[in-house]
Each structure stands twice: as structure tokens, then as C-alpha cells.
Simulated scan of single mutants.
Amino acid sequence: MLYRTNPKNGDKLSILGFGAMRLPTKEDGSIDEEKATKMVRYAIDNGVNLVDTAWPYHMGECEPFLARALSEGYREKVKLSTKLPTWAVNTREDMDKFLNAQLEKLNTKQIDYYLLHTLTKASWAKIKDLGVIDFLNSAKEDGRIKNAGFSYHGMQEDFAPIVDDYNWDFCLIQYNYLDEKVQAGTKGLKYAASKGLGVFVMEPLRGGNLAGKTPEEVMEIWNKADKKRTTVEWALRWVWNHPEVTSVLSGMTEPEQLEENIKIAEEGYPNSLTQKELGLIEQAALKYGELLKINCTGCGYCMPCPANVDIPTCFGIYNNLHMFHDETQRFQYFATLSDIFWTNEPHFASQCTNCGICIEKCPQYIQIPEMLEKVVAEFEGPDNDEKMAMVKSVFKM
């Protein structure tokens, strides 16, 4: 494992951090604790020393799970990161309430890296008015947190003012080769680093879109490379190629993903890609831009939907159809969103009531109701009943 130094405090952090947003789950949606614990400990045993979670991950069960997974001496081997749910904070007292609850849930006396979750210009203004600077200073002084930072989901022009508004120790930004101009982007990455902050990166694989089945048009580009790499390696190496990046948080669901990422991290040196390789990545980014119809990472911040629409799945299936020209997605749409295996409560795009709540929550600023209309036009129609009958016949229901 390679390590980089957080310039603000001298911590040597593994370039691969364990993001606990997408842990393996059982059929009922609960964390597969045995499998997930083995993964967390395998990561630490192989040099990962940064573990990241948050209040809402896995419906609030991620923090208590990590307390158990990091027992037996593992807590002492890592820097632990979690986040204040800024959207749920309405008073200065709420901030202490959430932090104290997280310390208890994580069974720890101190959070090494504590973030304000999902900052935008508006959310920063709100919690700043509520006294968050006093909260952070007090929590650092009394030892409940060691380092204060924020995760960013706002517009690029609003990033630098937030960086300048407090003596932050680090920040967390979305960054991958498709998002150089999205949110903080490359400009924000360089600015935060120039101010001496450690910069952690989330969504290096863009919600898994850069790790799964690769469109033929993109594979033609990768095949031009002198040294062959997997799509995951191209994506991770591109992020690590930036010397301003301190650590990359990757959400890993399967042990094989973890093992692959650890192996790739062995060569994640800054400025290690050739100009030809960087040129190929730029070509791939342009091609993906042509193929990706909806700029969704599947983060789930838009959920739950009051109308019971499964927004990330709707967008994921729509994007897969267009990126991979995969006509089986038309069947997948009804097989998945009908939920015939569990509740029989549908989650189709056509259930959208255009309430607009999801737009306020979306870190990508997607006009979700408008995009859901495109999903409806693509997949749904007067033959919905026939398609449902086909799904049921295939699964003999």
C-alpha cells in the first residue's frame, strides 16, 4: 500500500480508503455482517488505514456495524471518518446531539476525521448561522473530533469561499475523469490543496459506472493503450495521478473488488501516467459524455421518494440501455421496479408527482422529474400489462 501525507496535520494515509457506503447486504437489505467484517479487516490487514462512514449509510446501521468490525484491535489501526447530517440540524444543540450519538454508535472516544455532510452554498450558510464554527472548535478542543472537514456537493464557484471560511483540516470532493468540471472539479482540487488541506476523493468510479460493463466504443479506445488495464484501473490511476489527492474513498461490495483495488493501489503514484495514456483517458471521457444520458451517480440522496419512485434504479437502467445498447434493460426495468419479489409495490418512473423534493437533495443538480419523464417515454406505454405478464411468466409468479 502507498501512503500520502495530509499536509495539514502530517497524517500518513493510505491512498485507498475504505468507503462504507456500499457494503455487502443480505436479501432483506441488511448488512451481511460476516462478509462485510471480513472485507473491512482484510483491507486493514493489507495497509488501508482510513475508513469512512456517515450517519445515513445503510439506513443508519453502518456506524454500529463498524464499531463491531473495528473491535479486537482494529480501531487503533485506522483513522475513522464520519459525517454530521447537516440536513437534519436545526439548532446548535442538534450538532452536539448527533456527534455524541455517533461516538456512542461507533464505540469510540474520538472521530479522527469529522465532516459536515453535503455542503453547498445554502447549507453552509444555514449551519454557519446556527453556530457550526463554534461547534467544530468546541468539539476539537474537548477531543471529540481531531480533524474538521466537509464533503462538497455544490457548484464549482461556491467551493473556494467555503474553503476560505474556516480553518479546515481536509475536504471530500467527488472526482473522476468524467467530472473534472462537476462540483469542485479539478479547479477545486487544486485550490484546496494550495490552501494546505488534505483532499479526499469520493465517487472515483462514478457510482460504479466506470467499473462495470464497458461500452464497445470506449473499449476501442482502451485497446489502443500500450499497457492493458482494466476499466477500474484506468479510473483509479487517473485520480491517483493527481499529486493533490490525499486518499481515494472507494465503496466496495465484493471481496474481489477490494482485492483488485488494493492491487491497483500498489502503483498509484502521482504523475505516473504517460501523456499518451492521459490522452486515451480524455478520449474515453468524451465518449462517455456522448453516451451517458443522465448524470446520476446512484448516491441515493434523492431517496426516499414520496411517490415511491426508485429514482437511482430508474436512471441506472436508462443509462445502461443507452451506454451499452443493452436491450435486456427493457425487461430489467419491469423485473426490478415492479418489486414482485418482495412487496409487490411498484417503483416506476411514471409514479412521479413532480413534487420537486428530490431536486433539492440531488448533489448533481439533476432536474429529476424532467428526466423521469424521459425514462417513462423510453420504457413504459400501453403494453405495460403485457410486459408485466412476461416478467411474471419468466419467474413463474
Rank of each mutant, 00 (worst) to 15 (best):
262 I>G: 13
262 I>T: 13
262 I>E: 10
263 K>P: 04
263 K>I: 11
264 I>N: 01
264 I>A: 02
264 I>H: 00
264 I>E: 00
266 E>Q: 13
266 E>P: 03
267 E>Y: 08
267 E>C: 06
267 E>R: 12
267 E>I: 13
267 E>G: 12
268 G>V: 00
268 G>D: 01
268 G>C: 08
269 Y>F: 09
270 P>A: 10
270 P>L: 09
270 P>C: 08
270 P>S: 07
270 P>R: 08
271 N>G: 01
271 N>I: 04
272 S>D: 14
272 S>C: 15
272 S>W: 12
273 L>A: 09
274 T>M: 06
274 T>L: 04
274 T>I: 06
275 Q>A: 10
276 K>W: 02
276 K>L: 07
276 K>P: 01
276 K>E: 10
276 K>C: 03
277 E>Y: 11
277 E>S: 06
277 E>F: 07
277 E>A: 07
278 L>T: 10
278 L>N: 12
278 L>H: 11
278 L>Q: 12
279 G>N: 12
279 G>S: 15
279 G>P: 07
279 G>E: 13
279 G>W: 10
280 L>A: 06
280 L>C: 04
280 L>E: 07
281 I>M: 15
281 I>S: 04
281 I>D: 01
281 I>H: 03
281 I>V: 15
281 I>A: 10
282 E>M: 07
282 E>H: 07
282 E>I: 03
282 E>G: 03
283 Q>F: 14
283 Q>P: 12
283 Q>M: 15
284 A>S: 14
284 A>H: 06
284 A>G: 11
284 A>L: 13
285 A>G: 14
285 A>Y: 06
286 L>G: 00
286 L>Q: 05
286 L>E: 04
286 L>K: 03
286 L>I: 04
287 K>Y: 13
287 K>V: 15
288 Y>L: 14
288 Y>F: 15
289 G>A: 07
289 G>W: 08
290 E>S: 10
290 E>W: 05
291 L>M: 09
292 L>P: 01
293 K>N: 10
294 I>L: 06
294 I>F: 06
294 I>Y: 05
294 I>H: 03
295 N>E: 05
295 N>K: 08
295 N>L: 07
295 N>W: 07
297 T>D: 07
297 T>Q: 03
297 T>E: 05
297 T>M: 11
298 G>S: 00
298 G>F: 05
299 C>M: 05
299 C>N: 01
299 C>K: 03
300 G>Y: 03
300 G>S: 08
301 Y>E: 03
301 Y>S: 01
301 Y>L: 04
301 Y>M: 01
302 C>Q: 00
303 M>N: 02
303 M>I: 00
304 P>W: 07
305 C>E: 00
